Amino acid sequence: MAVEKQERTNLVATVRILYICTANQCRSPFAEATLQREAGGRPLEVSSAGLMSGSREVRPHGIAVGRERGLDLSAHRSRQVTEVDIDRFDLILTMERRHSREIVAEHPELAARVFTVKQFDRWATDHRRPRRAALRPWLELHGSRRPVQELLGDSEKDTVADPYNSAAPAWRQMADLFDAHAVRLIAWLEGC
């Protein structure tokens, strides 16, 4: 009988993270699978959704690149964010500012917990969460202090490129970004 390796963790309660992209067919499922792989035995619940209607499969290049990274995306079927109880997530990470704007327009009470992946990675560098502080109330306090300009306008620096119609190298570039993001996010959650 295989025993799952339990990671030592500073997390005292389950942290729920939701990734959102346009169709939940490329970026957000890849980010979800990558963070799940890196989570080990930590109490993380990771999910993904899209702004468009669901039931789409991950593109063939995405499945192949996922396999290279130890991720099985073959069974993934996209789902629309309206199928998700979005309020239950402690942190909502999008792939573009327009995704964040759409979520916040529909759910303004979530604004402090909604970031693009790249925004959050930068923001978290300057905002260390105390060990064992509950994530949601801490984010609702500190995330609400961000300038509203972070949601306005488009910014390429905050966009994770969509590899939808691209060859494997574009998928690998995206996968590299999510590998680094997952490591940073887990370290930040652990208070390291």
Rank of each mutant, 00 (worst) to 15 (best):
V3L: 15
V3G: 13
E4F: 01
R8N: 13
R8T: 15
T9W: 06
N10T: 12
N10G: 06
A13G: 00
T14W: 05
R16N: 08
I17S: 03
I17E: 02
L18R: 07
L18W: 03
Y19L: 13
T22Y: 06
A23S: 14
A23V: 09
S28V: 00
S28G: 03
T34L: 02
A39G: 04
A39R: 12
A39V: 08
G41Q: 14
G41N: 13
P43D: 05
P43S: 06
L44E: 06
E45K: 10
V46S: 09
S48H: 02
S48R: 07
A49M: 03
L51R: 10
M52C: 07
G54C: 13
G54H: 12
G54P: 11
S55N: 14
R59E: 09
P60G: 04
H61K: 09
G62R: 06
I63M: 13
A64I: 06
A64Y: 02
V65L: 07
G66C: 05
R67F: 01
E68N: 13
G70M: 08
L71S: 11
L71C: 07
L73N: 12
A75C: 07
R77W: 00
V84E: 03
D85R: 14
D85I: 07
F89N: 08
D90R: 15
I92D: 02
T94L: 03
M95F: 07
R97H: 04
R98C: 01
R98D: 00
R98W: 05
H99L: 02
S100N: 01
S100L: 03
A105K: 13
A105F: 04
P108G: 10
E109T: 12
E109N: 11
A111T: 10
A112C: 10
R113K: 13
R113Q: 12
V114D: 02
V114W: 08
V114P: 03
V117C: 08
V117T: 09
R122F: 01
W123D: 13
T125R: 15
D126S: 15
D126I: 05
H127C: 11
R128S: 01
R129M: 10
P130E: 07
A133G: 05
A134I: 11
L135E: 15
L135F: 14
L135N: 14
L139I: 10
E140D: 15
E140G: 00
E140L: 11
E140N: 11
L141N: 02
H142V: 15
G143P: 11
S144M: 07
R145Q: 12
R146E: 12
V148I: 14
V148P: 11
L151K: 12
L152Y: 07
G153C: 06
G153S: 05
S155I: 00
S155P: 03
E156F: 01
K157R: 15
A161W: 04
A161S: 12
A161P: 01
A161I: 13
D162N: 10
P163G: 04
P163Q: 11
Y164S: 04
N165D: 13
S166Q: 13
S166P: 00
A167S: 12
A167I: 12
P169A: 10
A170Q: 15
Q173M: 05
A175C: 06
F178T: 00
F178M: 14
D179M: 09
H181R: 14
V183W: 01
V183M: 08
V183F: 04
R184G: 04
I186V: 15
W188G: 03
W188L: 04
L189I: 11
L189N: 04
